[in-house]
C-alpha cells in the first residue's frame, strides 16, 4: 500500500481505507474489542477453560456428586476408584470425588472472599496514603512494611490460633494480611497519577478533591489492580490449602483441598 512514488489519487484511496476502518472501530465497543483480543490469545482461553471447570465444579457440586460431603461411610474405607466412587474413598470412608468437588467451594470462597476484602481495605488506605502524604502516609507505610516483612504463613498461623481455625477466620485473616501489598500498589499509582495533566485540568474546572480521587483517579488504577487481584487470589488459595494442610485452617469435616492432602 505504501508506494514511494505515490500520486495524488492513490493518497485519496488509502485515506478512504483508513476512514472505513475508523467506521468499523466506531461500531465496536471497548468491551467487544477486549473480548476479541482475549479470544485470539490461546493461553488466556485455556486458562479460562480451566477456571470455568473449577467454578462449574464448585457451583454444581451437589449435582455432580452422589454422596453428602460431610457424611462418612465406615463400611467403605480405602476403596480403589470404581464406578460408584470415581476417585475411590479415603481412610475415613469419605468419597474422594465428592470431597474434591465440595473442596473447590472452600478454595474459591477463601480466594475470592479474602481478595475482595483486602482490595477494599488496601485501596482505601492506599488512596489515603497517596493523596494525603505526610503523617498519614508514614503511619500506613510503616504498618505495611511491618506486615510485609514477616512470612505471611507465620502471621496467619498466629491470628488463626487466636480466633480458632475455621473457614471464616482463615478468610478474614488472609484478607487482613494481604491488603498491605494492594495498599503499596495503589499508593504508588496515585503518586504518579496525582501529577498527571488530566488531574490538573479537573482541578482547574473546579472538581472537588474527593471527586478527583474517586471519579478521575480510581478508574485509572483498575488495570494494575485487577492484575494484582488475580495474582493474590491464587496466593490466597495456596495459603488456605497450606494452612489446612498444617491443621491450622479449615477443619474436617468441612472439605478443603489442603486438609484432604493431610
Amino acid at each position: 500500500m505504501a508506494d514511494p512514488g505515490g500520486t495524488a489519487p492513490e493518497t485519496t484511496t488509502s485515506g478512504g481505507a483508513v476512514d472505513t476502518r475508523q467506521v468499523v472501530l466506531a461500531h465496536d465497543t471497548l468491551v467487544r474489542m477486549a473480548i476479541r483480543r482475549f479470544l485470539r490469545h490461546r493461553l488466556a482461553i485455556s486458562g479460562l477453560v480451566v477456571l470455568g471447570l473449577v467454578v462449574f465444579m464448585a457451583v454444581a457440586a451437589p449435582l455432580i456428586t452422589a454422596y453428602p460431603p460431610e457424611v462418612l461411610d465406615l463400611h467403605s474405607i480405602k476403596l480403589p476408584p470404581s464406578l460408584a466412587h470415581p476417585f475411590g474413598t479415603d481412610v475415613l470412608g469419605y468419597d474422594v470425588w465428592t470431597r474434591v468437588a465440595f473442596g473447590s467451594r472452600t478454595s474459591l470462597t477463601v480466594g475470592f472472599g479474602a481478595v475482595a476484602i483486602s482490595i477494599v481495605i488496601g485501596t482505601l488506605l492506599g488512596i489515603l496514603a497517596g493523596v494525603y502524604g505526610g503523617v498519614v502516609d508514614q503511619v500506613i507505610g510503616r504498618l505495611t512494611d511491618t506486615i510485609l516483612s514477616m512470612p505471611a504463613l507465620l502471621l496467619v498461623a498466629v491470628f488463626v490460633s487466636v480466633v480458632g481455625p475455621s473457614l471464616q477466620s482463615v478468610l478474614i485473616v488472609i484478607a487482613l494480611l494481604t491488603w498491605p501489598q494492594i495498599t503499596r500498589l495503589v499508593r504508588g499509582q496515585y503518586l504518579t497519577l496525582r501529577e498527571a495533566e488530566f488531574v490538573t485540568a479537573a482541578r482547574i474546572v473546579g472538581v472537588s478533591n474527593t471527586a478527583i480521587m474517586l471519579r478521575h483517579l480510581l478508574p485509572n488504577i483498575f488495570g494494575p489492580l485487577s492484575v494484582a487481584a488475580t495474582f493474590y487470589t491464587a496466593q490466597a488459595i495456596l495459603l488456605e490449602s497450606a494452612l489446612s494442610f498444617l491443621g491450622l485452617g479449615v477443619k474436617p469435616p468441612t472439605p478443603s483441598w489442603g486438609n484432604m492432602v493431610n
Binding site: M150, P151, A152, L154, A157, L246
Partner: peptide
C-alpha cells in the same frame, strides 16, 4: 520470608526438628 514459610511446611512434612515445626506446634 516465603522461604521461611516454605520451611514451616517442609519441616512439618519431613519431621525436621526445626523452627517451622515449632511454630506449628505453638500455633
Amino acid at each position: 520470608p516465603d522461604l521461611v514459610a516454605g520451611a514451616v511446611i517442609t519441616e512439618s512434612l519431613f519431621g525436621w526438628p526445626g523452627m517451622g515445626q515449632l511454630a506449628v506446634k505453638a500455633a
